[in-house]
Design a protein around this nucleic acid. Sequence first.
RNA 1: GCCGUUGUAGCUCAGUGGUAGAGCACUUCCUUGGUAAGGAAGAGGUCGAGAGUUCAAUUCUCUCUAACGGCUCCA
Length: 648
Amino acid sequence: MINITFPDGKVRSYEKGVTALDIAKSISEGLARKVLAANINGQVWDATRPIQDDATIKLLTWDDTEGKSTFWHSSAHLMAEAVESLFPGAKFWVGPAVENGFYYDIDLGDRQIVQEDLAKLETKMAELAKQNNPYVRKEISKVDALKYFGDKGDEYKLDLLGGLSDGSITFYTQGGFTDLCRGPHIPATGSIKAIKLTNIAGSYWKGDEKNKQLTRIYGVTFPQQKELDEYLKMLEEAKKRDHRKLGKELGIFTFDDQVGPGLPLWMPNGTIIIEELEKLAKETESKGGYKRVVTPHIAKESLYLTSGHLPYYADGMFPPMEMDGTTYYLKAMNCPHHHKIFAAEPRSYKDLPLRLAEYGTCYRYEQSGELFGLMRVRCLHMNDAHIYCSKEDFAKEFKAVNEMYLKYFKIFGIDRYVMRLSLHEPSKLGQKYIDSPELWVETEAMVRQVLIDTNTPFVEVPDEAAFYGPKIDVQIWSVIGREFTLATNQVDFAQGRRFNLEYTTKDNHTDVPLIIHRAPLGTHERFIGFLLEHYAGKFPTWLAPLQVKVLPISDKFLPYAQEIDQSLKLADIRSEVDDRSEKIGKKIRDTELAKVPYMLVVGEKEEADNVVSVRRQGKGDLGIQSLESFMGQIKSEISQRLSEENVS
RNA sequence: GCCGUUGUAGCUCAGUGGUAGAGCACUUCCUUGGUAAGGAAGAGGUCGAGAGUUCAAUUCUCUCUAACGGCUCCA
């Protein structure tokens, strides 16, 4: 007999060789039906795998993350079985569970899989699932495994086997399909009740674009049809707040074929948001001791040779232009221009820290397939600044930048993000990274210490640094789940030297400043794209392109409405009158859909008493107020940059 | 850039080997209405671009272009 310890600390004895599924059955049949896998001594196991020794157990169901991912991984195998039966000879690379479902990368040889095939595959999968075939685990020797896939001519699985050592190799078989797989898997195919194959994509083998492209099929499955229906409905809802859809509906931005891909045209409404963001940045930076500068959009090639950008970034820049026998580039970054401003005058320690800020316009040649609404564009306006400081001041400056981020995030109510400390990869020194090993170690430690000192939660990511130093990126997700870097804070120990930037120290020596590159508000493009989704188009009043719409009950009250509108405009409130000969219900509906924060309804009563009826978008009628009282409130809401949740 | 999908009116979308429709938006007229759609009439499209097949192409084929879902890449 062996002792099994449950999460609540209770211990029960079972026969040696008992399975998690047996244990679940001993508790209740209902639980046994729900068990997908089990956490045994901290490892996720098949629920059908015999337990030989004393162990702790946690039964995993659909409600556990590991239960879900096991379910989806098993679904990937089920899909592979269906693919093999409809496309004999298909070879399989890997088929993991992902955040919302699973995929499998497949080499179909000369054949192609198209959208219509997905329905056939779904039908086949449902048929195979109904057979309720068990997933059978088998330990196998490396020799036998190599022979099995060698006979099959499957170079992909042979490649995987190459990295595995004897004794750690397992096969899983369900129905007629056998795969090299670490597992674990759910007990049997029967619990996969609802299946949706979502899309087909190409995917490079081992993620390297020089390798062959495999066909990737994405799918998602559920234990109940109802859950699939809910999932699909959720996707529909998410699409409604997609910034590309909202941006068009609200007249924020547009693209034009003749202007070019990835080159957004900011419409009047979007321009207002840009101006409000710049106002916020200027106020904040001015208080933080920043000085504003303006620099050209192009520069000579030699500038980028000095900065060291060209060898690393040439592919990401627009092609060079020849002029008067000199090569020019459109700028992809503002830093070299700012360095030249630093270098324009002799600097002493008394000038430091010198903080140069610019909403700089950059052009980056993003590959065509990477463009994505406002989130990935080729023309961008960066909330850029460079801080030149001594090593002693570095921690203080870096911390102040971090605090600026958090201040901004509070204003916008941004709480779903991850701070990512990006580090260098020592084996790539001299290629991807500046070859100064000791400086890398030193600055990475400094940055990490600042994060620890300020209690900022972060994750460390190797091989993601800028070529000139480590950085902190703030990662966010678009409404359809794509990940982006919203803001960035980078240390640069390289460019100061490359540009011969110097300052005179207190003891009359010269030293090279450290440089901090920072963009807390990222770029207008990505930030506004993000805000559109974050607010679902319902901008807080301070950002809303139109803040108030005055709605006369009928044309008779148009003069009074225009008088109100004029007063608002004089108080710098963005206001308009709906002067159409429509019924009030229609005017309200259109203004609600346009997501204008406030509506002022005016008719006979209001004109007689010299008041307005206030209506808040999404909330309805707030009652009658004097215009002065309303203006006082909205002015205060705007000047404090309040979000709707803080507005009473 | 690569794999897959799509491109019809300002927007959302029908449709056809014989040069096109709906709803909303727009214009005009009627209506002057109290908190989410009043009524009527009208205007609006080289069916993404180019080439090919055909008596005839928006429809079939090819190329290009742009967008979308991914891969790679990135603020």
